[in-house]
Design a protein around this nucleic acid. Structure first.
Lengths: 338, 338
DNA sequence: CTGTTAGCGCGTTCAC
DNA sequence: GTGAACGCGCTAACAG
């Protein structure tokens, strides 16, 4: 019913110029306090609301940032987004969220769309498929700040927020060793993907540091999809010499692997101890026998947004990477008694 | 580096008018195929990308819809959003997502912001606190289509997407009765909130239809926060006559209630059978003893978006509510053997 | 088929 | 302190 009220409407009613109204609404000190109050009162009275689209066009900033993640409904990502969103809102920024479905083509298209929306900055967790980085370079050419999180990008030097994957791989493995495990399997993903690469390196280093040998047949590589968990677990059960520990570099896979083990009557951690990555709230409930690496997704989101805000204000980006502290969540019932 | 290319740049280079360029890029048949091709080729060559903000200002539509949910990181909502997003993208719409944190104040503010962004439509799951609906009326006054999902709004007649809560409450309770339960507790929320009201009605009706009495002391009301689960479960254990079935009208609460029961050594379903609401992937993993109502969140998102698209094209909104089919997920291990 | 004109609503000069 | 004028990039309306 009510037509949209513009600053011109307000101006006419008060017999002043629209630019004054504009300034008053922006609380500019260049307009007398009295007229400011008057204008703001009238604005509220008429239910005026600023047309952000017009404002954006003129001011060439949208106070909007774009976020691209593989899947919004994965707990890790939705929690990262919650962190981003909270911190963004506090700083007056809006957030537009897109899913890439882990497909580079969609990722490229979404980023292009976000750019055409004139977003002020971009927060991206690149897809598993992403090897070609032309679309990311394109973003930089447009001088739009870009911060990555979770997944690092090989070719390009970009600020990236992630946990210390090497360190956590090391700690996870050390935990198993401390529990008395001597034959520890590692489920990993493509070595091209740096998070998996690094976690594996941490695993290897921990073994070496504790006088254990790194054996290739204990390192099982897969796409780490949910279904892979059961396949991998079965592979472990079929091994002639049964392993006594598993470190899985991925959350979904860890869960489904544990499922199979439990179904098959394997006692965890007595028969095989298990360390996975966190998939809260699953990790909280699923199995008290699951030790996991808590990646702190909300914190990752917060730090990512902070970093982007930094880029937004000052051009120089000194630090390339920022590590978010992660830690092992060990439950009493996940400890071997022996 | 590269400055942003505008249609004027293209126009000058090709010695034609900018409006022709505009039409060509919109693939309007009013431009000769040949010049269209020429222009589009040049556009691609120079890396032109339409300034959507300017376009929106002029065309008075943003092809953007706003979504407001209590918490983005809850599985139910993030999955609804995934459904919305998929269907929106397919139809050329962008999605902006906001969290209300279940606070009416934030909800009002977010909706106001989205309106100032000139969104073409709004999809809202109202907060638990929402009783005053002025801000929703305001949306309608602005003639912006508004569709609710999950939570219904009492005062206002608005298209709302939800499951058949009465029916599911009935089925859940009937399932317990069929398993041999005779003393069935119901965890419910505020009777003001229609989903809880309806689920409770279904519970009551099922009892009556099967010759059981509705007993007030078996109906436990709380805010249904996560922490309430444990409190409620303890209450059940403390009852002089121990119940043999529980129907919980909420996901988070169901999970934490089960947790406590399991901790206390209660055998589910042998001692007490349990039906909750789905919180996938939790429901899949947590406990094979948990029967739950699958609310089909992705489908809810899809239907919500469809409904909104309908409102977006044709003004009349005939149907006020749309029910999304839900169903009980019963696992073999959740059946009482007796 | 294409060009011309005139804004969309707001922010930013400049003068005053 | 305030107002007039202009332009952001694009598109609707009307010519021709």
């Amino acid at each position: 019913m009510k037509k949209k009220v513009t600053i011109h409407d307000l101006a006419k009613m008060l017999n002043i110029d629209s630019s004054t109204v504009s300034r008053a609404l922006a609380n500019s000190p260049r307009v007398k306090q009295k007229t400011r109050d008057l204008i703001q009162a009238k604005a509220k009275e008429l239910g005026y609301s600023r047309n952000v689209v017009a404002s954006n066009l003129r001011s060439k900033r949208t106070l909007t940032i774009g976020v691209v993640v593989p899947y919004i409904s994965r707990y890790f990502f939705s929690t990262v987004i919650a962190g981003i969103e909270e911190h963004a809102t506090e700083n007056g920024y809006q957030v537009i969220i897109c899913q890439s479905h882990d497909q580079i083509e969609r990722e490229q298209q979404m980023i292009q769309t976000l750019l055409s929306y004139q977003v002020d900055g971009l927060l991206v967790s690149i897809s598993m498929e992403t090897e070609n980085t032309d679309h990311l370079k394109h973003v930089l050419n447009q001088e739009v700040p870009l911060v990555l999180f979770d997944r690092k990008c090989n070719g390009l030097s970009l600020p990236t927020i992630h946990i210390d994957d090497f360190q956590m791989g090391y700690e996870a493995t050390k935990h198993l060793i401390d529990q008395g495990c001597r034959r520890i399997v590692h489920f990993t993903g493509s070595d091209q993907i740096s998070i998996y690469h690094d976690r594996k390196q941490g695993y290897c280093q921990a073994l070496k540091d504790h006088g254990l040998v790194v054996s290739e047949e204990l390192i099982l590589t897969s796409a780490l999809k949910e279904a892979d968990g059961k396949l991998l677990a079965q592979q472990v059960l079929d091994m002639p010499l049964r392993p006594d520990g598993i470190f899985c570099a991925n959350d979904l896979t860890a869960i489904s692997a544990m499922q199979l083990l439990i179904e098959k009557g394997v006692k965890i951690p007595e028969d095989i101890a298990f360390v996975g990555f966190s998939n809260e709230p699953l990790g909280n409930y699923l199995s008290p026998a699951l030790t996991s690496v808590n990646q702190n997704p909300k914190e990752i989101g917060k730090v990512a947004m902070q970093t982007l805000l930094g880029e937004l204000s000052t051009k120089p980006s000194p630090d390339t990477d920022r590590l978010v502290p992660a830690h092992l969540v060990v439950r009493a019932s996940s400890l071997k008694k022996g």
